[in-house]
Write a protein that binds this DNA or RNA. Structure first.
Lengths: 144, 144
DNA sequence: TTCAGTGCAAAGCGTTTGCAGGGTG
DNA sequence: CACCCTGCAAACGCTTTGCACTGAA
């Protein structure tokens, strides 16, 4: 967690700043947050943190392997901490509900592609479709 | 195909225009094209087609079920005709190569989620990772 | 003749970049 | 005290929207 941060930054000759600590913490607390949401959360604690800092920091944190991002909508990506167990995102396009599944869900897929030498990035995977409630409620799925 | 277009438009009280025909044809010919690429392709044949028309038309075509879109990068989406067999996209984040796989690849996944009543949108699925060549060439994948 | 569809221009959203000043190591 | 990091503001890429005109049915 945050101790990792100081250490991993140092390994890369990068610096530990309050912003970087706050942004990492925000991602950990919010679970699945867009850069905008991260910014808002950080600003609740310290005003005058800039959006560009959030973008730059999320990029650094992702390079350090401390956070990951996925695309759960056609809009902004969502970031989550790598502290959580790796998981696969399943998204209902109708009600926008997001469920997390164990990576075992896609194990057959991962194995099949491994035969071709392809390494699947499971944490990035987002599976879209229509959930039970929504397919019951209505018959015609609409595009995202 | 294009005959479908006239018919499906009529069913919805919508109109058949040269732009709509050209845009659908462009998507069919280009296989996997961004709105921008579709625009460029259409303009090769008829000048003064507007970007907003392309966006509006792709939306209509998708509602009619004639085209589909996927996200093969963090940038613009790509559209393809539903004439082609449904396929799953596998994308190497390193070299950006895109391979299409038979939906059978994800059949176990689809079946597992079907148990929960979730209907997977297979055509929208994009699986990211590192291809054989790239994982051989280098050891540290970078985020998209 | 009606009203869906278009082009145009402007605005929108999310993100990136150049720069000068500030703070970490 | 070097140089990484930040805030600010402007620019960027992609997409959406308002409006008046055009043209399909």
């Amino acid at each position: 967690m945050s101790d990792d941060l100081a250490q991993r930054l140092r390994e890369q000759g990068l610096r530990l700043t309050p912003q970087r600590q706050l942004i990492l913490r925000a991602v950990e607390e919010l679970r699945h947050a867009t850069p905008d949401e991260v910014l808002a959360h950080v600003r609740d604690q310290v005003s005058s943190v800039n959006a560009s800092t959030v973008y730059r920091t999320l990029e650094v944190l992702e390079e350090l392997g401390l956070v990951r991002h996925t695309h759960l909508s056609d809009r902004a990506p969502t970031y989550h901490s790598t502290d959580e167990h790796e998981h696969v995102h399943v998204v209902c396009r109708r009600c926008h509900a997001v469920r997390s599944y164990d990576p075992g869900l896609v194990q057959p897929l991962v194995a099949a592609l491994a035969d071709d030498g392809f390494v699947v990035d499971v944490g990035h995977l987002a599976i879209f479709g229509t959930c039970a409630d929504c397919s019951a409620a209505d018959e015609q799925p609409r595009p995202t």
